[in-house]
Write a protein that binds this DNA or RNA. Structure first.
Lengths: 171, 171
DNA sequence: CCGCGATAGTTGACGTGTCACCGATGCACC
DNA sequence: GGTGCATCGGTGACACGTCAACTATCGCGG
């Protein structure tokens, strides 16, 4: 969804008018699209080059790392990460094959499973953390003034609140 | 990359200190991560439900729609979209199979290919555009004040400029 | 204790994105 | 007019994410 494209596509398509985006609005939307595309690509790439972890790998590891006993019910982990169960299950399978996590049966609930951060997983996480923080700083945080940081956080939270309240949570 | 996770992982991992994220900085980073996750998911989903197009499908269609003669060299299209050639090639193959675009040989350059928006592709684009704009408004633009819109655009552009200048462009 | 809907988690199929590599053409330089 | 390298674009293998379907267990009402 780049720049003028939506507008011209729309202009060609319709004769009456829903509320099209104004100039500043288009600018914000374009900035959003491009920023997320480039920033995610860049941070993922540095993480992968540094230590062979993908972005989702790091997410899982860091969430497990802060869990009590370095273990967590699959479902609870999915909720915390805003991931679908399916996505998490697939990803855990891949990470398990690489020895970063393991699965255990849950004593309390016969249906349940517990994911455990292995020692190898913890080492990987420790290896990755500092570099990841630096990347986030270098490509995002340090580019902004403190006022911009706060403004951005507020905007993001507004959007997140709207989406979670409106039933937009992942399956 | 959620909330406290990076911090605690880091705190467990290292004894000396690179510059960790402060509270407001963590808040901004978390807001960014969650906003992009939820907003992209939501807008993609509405687009898919409305007219069976994925987000990348719409990107390609709208870029082609604003091209002269509704056609474009593959390479130029990739550059405009900030996509890798490989990604675009794969996606064009899939869209071609669905009849949304077609490929032609380029007269000027024997290596080249030209992508053309088919009539079916144009109809799909027209069908999708209004709903897409409304979704962008409903879940993003209309949630923000004009001041926030401008601030956001400025922040996004700062980040994009930094990343493109630093050689972070996709392959 | 049985039936039955709800919940936990997994799986398979498929669309998507990346990486490494390839074949072909263009182009500059000798 | 050949040599050599860059560029154009495509392909195959694989990682990732979604959807729909499935199994197994839970827990409630009878």
């Amino acid at each position: 969804m780049s720049d003028m494209s939506i507008r011209s596509a729309y202009a060609g398509a319709v004769t009456s008018s829903p509320r099209w985006l104004t100039g500043p609005e288009q600018r914000a939307w374009q900035a959003y699209r491009r920023m997320t595309l480039l920033l995610n690509a860049r941070i993922s790439r540095e993480l992968a080059d540094d230590c062979g972890l993908s972005d989702p790998d790091y997410d899982v590891l860091s969430n497990l790392g802060e869990s009590a006993e370095r273990r967590c019910r699959v479902n609870e982990l999915a909720d915390r990460m805003l991931w679908s169960r399916s996505r998490l299950s697939h990803h855990l399978t891949r990470m398990q094959q690489r020895g970063l996590v393991s699965r255990e049966h849950c004593a309390d609930d016969g249906r349940g499973a517990v994911v455990v951060l292995t020692d190898a997983g913890l080492r990987k996480l420790e290896e990755a953390a500092a570099g990841h923080v630096e990347a986030v700083r270098r490509h995002f945080i340090d580019l902004l003034t403190p006022e911009e940081i706060d403004a951005f956080a507020g905007i993001g939270e507004t959007v997140v609140t709207h989406l979670t309240d409106e039933g937009g949570a992942p399956a």
